[in-house]
Amino acid sequence: MDSSVTPRSDDLDRRRLYQVYGDDTDTIASFIALFLSDVIPHFTDLENELIGKEWGALAERAHQLRSWLAMVGLTKLENQLLHIEEQARNNPDECGIRQTYTTFREQLNQMIPVLIQEVERLNRR
């Protein structure tokens, strides 16, 4: 895979995390852990809505999940999900949405180990 699109630890927007949560690393770690355990499974629902061409439901779920990406410092992915939401609401081109979603999902999957490492790092403090 092209390393220019492979998420790395520095793709985690720590600056935003500290803007939102201040120095409360326990809260940051808790939100990331909650995201990993409870929110990640909902991305499968998003994919199922894409497969079923349920554009309204897809746009709504993307909107709901987008705020979680912001809360765990995945700003780049938040912007990609916004694009998917807008495509589903305004111009539901299946091929275009599918391409955007595939890239998004690959990068989200690559960020999961980064998030796990971040929780471990924060819990060691």
Rank of each mutant, 00 (worst) to 15 (best):
L46N: 09
T27D: 08
S4A: 03
E85T: 11
D93W: 05
N123Q: 07
E49W: 14
I84W: 15
I40M: 11
E47T: 07
K76Q: 09
F104H: 10
R124V: 05
K53E: 15
Q110D: 09
Q110W: 02
E94C: 08
Q110P: 03
M71K: 04
N48K: 13
D45T: 13
R105E: 14
G73N: 04
M111H: 03
A59H: 13
T44E: 14
A33R: 05
N90M: 12
F104V: 14
Y21I: 06
Y101E: 15
V72A: 04
N90R: 04
G52N: 14
L65F: 10
L46V: 11
S4W: 03
P113V: 00
D26E: 13
D10P: 03
I28R: 01
L34T: 15
L82H: 05
R16D: 09
R14V: 03
G52F: 13
L65H: 03
G22M: 04
Y101R: 04
D93C: 13
F35H: 10
T100R: 10
T100P: 06
R16A: 10
W68A: 11
F43Y: 14
A70Y: 04
A59E: 13
E118M: 01
T75Q: 06
R14P: 00
F35N: 06
W68N: 11
M1F: 00
K76P: 11
D38Y: 14
L65S: 12
N91A: 08
N79A: 14
L50K: 10
L77V: 07
S67Y: 10
P41L: 15
